[in-house]
Amino acid sequence: MIFEEEIKKSVFITQIAHTPSIESAKAFIDGVKKEHSNARHNCWGFVAGRPENSMMWGFSDDGEPSGTAGKPILAQLSGSGIGELAAVVTRYYGGIRLGTGGLVKAYGGGVQQALKLIQTIEKKITTQLRLELDYAFVATAQSELSKFSAVEVESYYSDTVTLIVEVEVNKVDALTQSIINKSGAKTMVSPVEHN
Rank of each mutant, 00 (worst) to 15 (best):
G95T: 09
Q113F: 01
G95S: 09
S37A: 14
G63A: 04
A87L: 05
F46Q: 00
G110Y: 09
K116E: 15
Y92A: 11
Q142C: 11
A69T: 09
K105C: 02
G108E: 04
L103W: 08
K124Q: 13
R40G: 01
L98M: 04
A86T: 10
S78R: 15
R91N: 06
G67Q: 12
G45S: 05
F137A: 12
S78G: 11
A39V: 02
I118W: 09
Y107L: 11
S37Y: 01
G108S: 06
P72R: 03
K71P: 00
F59D: 07
D61L: 04
Q119I: 08
G102L: 06
K123Y: 12
Q112D: 12
F59M: 15
G94F: 07
V88H: 01
W57F: 15
H41K: 02
A136P: 00
R130N: 12
A86Y: 03
C43S: 15
G63P: 04
D62G: 07
S37F: 08
L98V: 02
A139S: 14
A114G: 14
G49F: 01
T120K: 12
M56T: 10
S54A: 14
T100K: 13
S80R: 10
E122H: 13
W44A: 14
L103K: 12
L117Y: 01
C43M: 08
T68Q: 10
G81V: 05
F46M: 05
L129Q: 13
S37R: 07
D62V: 12
W57G: 01
E144P: 00
A86E: 10
K124P: 01
S60P: 02
L98D: 04
T127G: 02
G70F: 03
Q113T: 05
G58W: 05
A86D: 06
E84S: 14
S54E: 15
A141M: 09
M55Y: 09
Q142K: 15
W44R: 03
F137S: 13
A139H: 06
E35W: 07
E144T: 05
K34C: 02
T120A: 07
Y92Q: 10
E144I: 11
Q113L: 12
G110E: 06
K123C: 07
P51H: 09
S66K: 13
G108Q: 06
K71N: 08
E132I: 15
K123V: 15
V88K: 01
S60L: 02
D62S: 08
G83C: 11
G81L: 00
G102Q: 07
K105E: 13
N42V: 00
G101N: 12
K147Q: 14
G94P: 11
E144V: 11
T127H: 02
Q142R: 15
A39W: 02
H36C: 04
V88F: 03
W44H: 13
K147Y: 06
V47N: 01
L74P: 08
H36N: 01
E35M: 12
F148Q: 05
R40W: 03
I82K: 12
A136T: 13
I121H: 10
D61K: 01
Y92H: 14
V89H: 03
S149N: 14
E132G: 08
T90Q: 06
L133F: 07
G94Y: 11
G45N: 03
L117F: 00
K71Y: 11
G94V: 10
G79C: 06
